[in-house]
């Protein structure tokens, strides 16, 4: 049984019309409906992640991968009705909960996001309070899950810093004084704080130098395997997905155009778009 499954996931910005699905996607070459102007961020996406497995989602900007990541991480604050007039359809099933996660009430969503499914945002500013200390950012996640004992919280934060290779001595410094790589590690430590079953990483290397990227990814890869936590890694960078993911989905214009074992996708791409994507890197 899969840990997390998405079935027919569709996210549309705008009013939508009967033609939206047919007039967008890979064959149409756009994600914007020419009839009503709505943007079909993603449509009819089916995926599943098993316990401890890493699923990669690769595509260019506008492919719908970030919308999909947010949807899977239950990041849209009002459930079925997304932000700024978007609409989410389909089903998200999770082994730790009965029913469709897209239909749960605010409290349940809040609880799942704090404990079971956590998101590492693409932009540090969306994930961290930069004026707070690094330790405070991680502690905040524990407090919202109900931790109350000061010493226990501090001890847990300390061990998360060690696990993600952040100098413990910097725990009380404001997060904006950290390097980009350290800020990303704080995000990862925060995401892992409540022992989630699934971590969703949205473009984990954004804004980092190449040498720093490699170190952050390696840390994540080690911790992910040690903790046996499942992950969904969304990136435009094939190298990121190649390093982390067991299986990969390739997205374009809001549709999944190809999926399979990551090494198979890289070495034996079937879809024309995947072939172009991989040839442009080699």
């Amino acid at each position: 049984m899969s840990l997390l499954e998405g079935a027919d996931l569709t996210k549309i910005y705008g009013d939508g019309c009967e033609s939206c699905r047919a007039r967008t996607g890979d064959s149409a070459g756009t994600n914007q409906c020419p009839v009503c102007g709505s943007v079909v961020a993603c449509a009819d996406v089916n995926l599943s992640v098993a316990e401890g497995e890493v699923l990669g989602i690769v595509g260019e900007s506008g492919s719908g991968k970030s919308s999909l990541a947010e949807t899977l991480a239950l990041a849209a604050d009002d459930g079925g009705e997304g932000e700024s007039g978007s609409r989410i359809e389909g089903e998200i099933r999770y082994a730790g909960h009965e029913g469709n996660l897209l239909e749960v009430d605010y409290e349940t969503r809040h609880r799942l996001r704090n404990g079971d499914i956590s998101l590492v945002h693409q932009h540090v500013r969306d994930g961290l309070e930069l004026d707070f200390s690094g330790g405070g950012n991680v502690a905040e996640k524990l407090l919202s899950a109900g931790w109350r004992n000061y010493e226990a919280v501090r001890e847990r934060v300390r061990s998360l810093f060690e696990e993600t290779e952040i100098p413990v001595g910097r725990m009380d410094d404001p997060t904006h004084t950290y390097s980009g790589g350290m800020q990303r590690r704080v995000q990862i430590a925060r995401a892992l704080a409540n022992d989630p079953a699934v971590v969703v990483l949205d473009e984990p290397t954004t804004g980092l130098d190449v040498s720093v990227q490699a170190r952050v990814l390696d840390t994540f890869r080690r911790v992910q395997r040690e903790e046996g936590v499942a992950a969904i890694v969304v990136s435009h960078d094939l190298g990121v997905v190649r390093l982390l993911a067991d299986r990969t989905l390739v997205m374009r214009h809001g549709r999944v155009v190809e999926s399979g074992l990551t090494d198979r996708i890289m070495e034996d791409p079937h879809h024309e778009y995947t072939q172009t994507l991989i040839n442009s890197v080699i």
Partner: peptide, 9 residues
Amino acid sequence: LKCLYRTYE
């Protein structure tokens, strides 16, 4: 070999 390992399908 890649077909046997399924790196090639």
